[in-house]
């Protein structure tokens, strides 16, 4: 009982519904009971969490309160009870649609002679396999095998002919090939000097090309870096513009809401005037 009272006092203190005397007494109680003080702080934090849920702005539905009064309004909402039947109405409507589609497309499902037949329009029954005799089946299989064998033999013969022709053409090419010289010329000092000079010239050309290419590549790289930086700045600018646009949209939404509220007030005023005239 004591503990229960303490809980009630804690709640009353938490919500400031205590007289000054009670409050002072309870504060003294908390000083002597650290557990109670801890509990108070925890509940205070929970209240802080709850304070994150703020009131939502909502506009009441606008209705003209004429001679018929609220009956029209109430009636319109009572019709909302139809909402409860919505799922059943939806199922019934779906069934009707399915039946109609089935009727139009002549959809049918039948079961006969161990066959389940599903289809549109008229379903033609498949003639049962038992109408063929065993001899006819054997003949059909034999004919099919013979035809396949003949086709395979023809294919093999054609391939052999093609291969013979290829071999013959290869032999002809081999006979026509010239013989390469077996000996190399003797190398002199002059030839070596010429070769050395030629190499130097080639190297100089290669180095020149290398340096030129390196310069071009560096220029391209620098250009890429500059482009990327420009792109980054452009992105930043776009982001800033998006932010500004979003802020403007928010501003417009607020303005629209205010406009709606003004319209409602005007409607109420109009309603008042009508009412007073009546």
């Amino acid at each position: 009982m004591e503990r229960e009272n303490l809980k009630n006092d804690l709640i009353a203190y938490l919500y400031g519904e205590m007289s000054t005397e009670e409050r002072l007494l309870f504060e003294r109680e908390m000083e002597s009971d650290p557990e109670l003080a801890k509990e108070f702080l925890e509940l205070k934090q929970v209240r802080k969490g709850l304070s994150h849920m703020e009131d939502k702005e909502v506009m009441e539905p606008f209705f003209l309160w004429g001679r018929n009064g609220v009956n029209g309004w109430a009636g319109s909402f009572k019709r909302r009870s139809l909402v409860l039947f919505k799922p059943f109405i939806a199922v019934a409507a779906s069934l009707v649609i399915l039946l109609l589609v089935g009727y139009v497309t002549q959809f049918s499902i039948t079961y006969q002679d161990n066959q389940l037949l599903i289809g549109f329009n008229r379903i033609e029954t498949i003639s049962p396999a038992s109408q063929l005799t065993e001899e006819q089946v054997i003949n059909l299989v034999r004919n099919a095998i013979e035809q396949n064998n003949e086709r395979l033999l023809t294919l093999i013969k054609n391939t052999e002919d093609k291969m013979d022709t290829r071999f013959a053409s290869l032999e002809t090419i081999q006979e026509k090939q010239p013989e390469y010289p077996q000996t190399a010329n003797t190398v002199t000092d002059k030839d070596l000097q010429d070769f050395y000079q030629q190499m130097q010239q080639t190297n100089a050309v290669i180095m020149e090309n290398y340096l030129r290419n390196a310069t071009v590549q560096q220029q391209e790289y620098f250009q890429t870096v500059v482009n990327q930086f420009t792109g980054y700045l452009q992105d930043q600018r776009q982001e800033d513009l998006r932010l500004i646009r979003r802020s403007l949209v928010n501003l417009k939404e607020n303005q629209d809401q205010q406009q709606q509220e003004t319209q409602q007030i005007l409607a109420n005023l109009l309603n008042n005037v009508n009412y007073q005239n009546n």
Binding site: E42, Q45, V46
Partner: peptide, 26 residues
């Protein structure tokens, strides 16, 4: 009414702690 409020807030406190949130950072 006070008792219901007390148990309600305590239930919330327990659920907050159970879900791993820090009550002090509210």
């Amino acid at each position: 009414a006070k008792s219901r409020l007390y148990y309600g807030l305590n239930n919330l406190k327990k659920m907050i702690s159970k879900s791993g949130m820090n009550l002090e950072k509210f």
